[in-house]
Simulated scan of single mutants.
Amino acid sequence: MSSSRSQSIQGTLPVIAALLGNGFIAVLKFVGFFISGSGAMLSEAIHSFADTANQALLMVGIRRSKKKATNEFSYGYGKERFLWALISACGIFFVGAGATIYQGINALIRPQHADVTYIVFTILAISFVIESGTLIVAYRELRKTGGKAKFKKILKNGDPATIAVLYEDGIAVLGVVVAFVSILLTELTGAYYWDAIGSIVIGLMLGVMAIILINKNRALLLGKAIPEEVKDRIIEILEEDPAIESVTDFRSAIMDVGKYRIKCEVEFNGNALAKEMFARGALREEFEEVRNDYQEFIKFCVDYIDRVPRLVGNHIDKIEKRIQEEYPEVVHIDIELN
């Protein structure tokens, strides 16, 4: 599979797995709520419903980010992935966290009897298994695409859709544990406030996760720079070339998952390029033709001036090719000469 193809489908498997898993779990949890009347179970049902809707939004973003570049959007639609991930994160905050915390506070103010049966715990157990499975799928996807990098670094620079699934399913697994403990405590003690506290704790976890995802996707939409170590290595490649004295300005942006754009200004050393040409014996034949005729020499110089921009351009193309050989994800390069 080609690199570009693999980048285009990155995040699809975890999102589809989470979408199907959470959709099924949401139905089960709503059934559990109607059977038991538990506020924590309702919070978990709302949580799973919100996750299902959010993963549908992530899928929209992934599909739309694959659209080819047009005259109107010459750099493509890669940032659609970040936009829909941001909308998804806002949905988690307002629908998931907001509704869940409201339900918990309402249960504290107006306690309701919860009729807990073995069916409720069975539903929570099934949810735990499915959520753990989709969590593992997301984790493996991040590990596969992140290579040997530290996991903290992968979370910083990885696909936002896959990271969203990882966070959502991680919180979902914890949420099931919280719901199980709060329902069990309510059943054992007869104190209904445990059920309400469980709902509030689940809502707070969702809120914190949503804020993290909102901040991450906001940065990507604003044009977050490429990883620092990649930037440093690209500058090193540029300055290793004899024709480039220094890089005076370097700017970059992440355009999509695995797609970078860089722009830099360099101090160009024309003498180094000329020495390289002459070392290969360039202009030797032309010199022999005009060495005894000054007018022919002037004419040759005027004609040769037209070749200089092309020579410089070809050299810049070689440098860009060298960068892309090491970092294929750098799909747009703009090198300006000072």
Rank of each mutant, 00 (worst) to 15 (best):
Y192I: 08
Y192L: 14
Y192H: 14
D195I: 07
I197S: 05
G198W: 07
G198T: 11
S199A: 15
I200T: 03
I200Q: 02
I200F: 05
V201Q: 01
V201C: 04
I202S: 03
I202P: 00
I202E: 03
G203E: 01
G203I: 03
L204D: 01
L204T: 06
L206D: 01
L206C: 04
L206T: 02
V208Q: 03
V208P: 02
V208A: 13
I211H: 00
L213D: 00
L213E: 00
K216F: 03
K216C: 00
K216P: 00
N217K: 04
N217G: 02
R218D: 08
R218P: 01
R218F: 09
A219Q: 08
L220E: 09
L220V: 07
L221D: 09
L221I: 08
L221M: 09
L222D: 12
L222G: 14
K224H: 13
K224L: 12
A225N: 12
A225D: 13
I226Y: 05
I226L: 08
P227C: 06
P227M: 05
E229F: 12
K231V: 15
D232C: 04
D232V: 07
I234C: 06
I235C: 08
I235N: 06
E236M: 13
L238R: 06
E239T: 13
E239C: 10
P242Y: 10
P242D: 12
A243I: 04
A243T: 09
I244P: 00
I244C: 02
I244L: 08
E245L: 13
E245N: 14
S246R: 14
V247K: 14
V247I: 11
D249R: 12
F250L: 09
F250P: 02
S252H: 09
S252I: 05
A253I: 14
A253H: 09
M255G: 05
D256I: 03
V257R: 02
K259N: 08
K259T: 04
Y260L: 01
Y260F: 04
Y260Q: 00
Y260C: 00
R261V: 12
R261P: 01
R261Y: 10
R261L: 15
I262W: 03
K263G: 13
E265Y: 10
V266I: 13
V266N: 07
E267V: 15
E267T: 15
E267S: 14
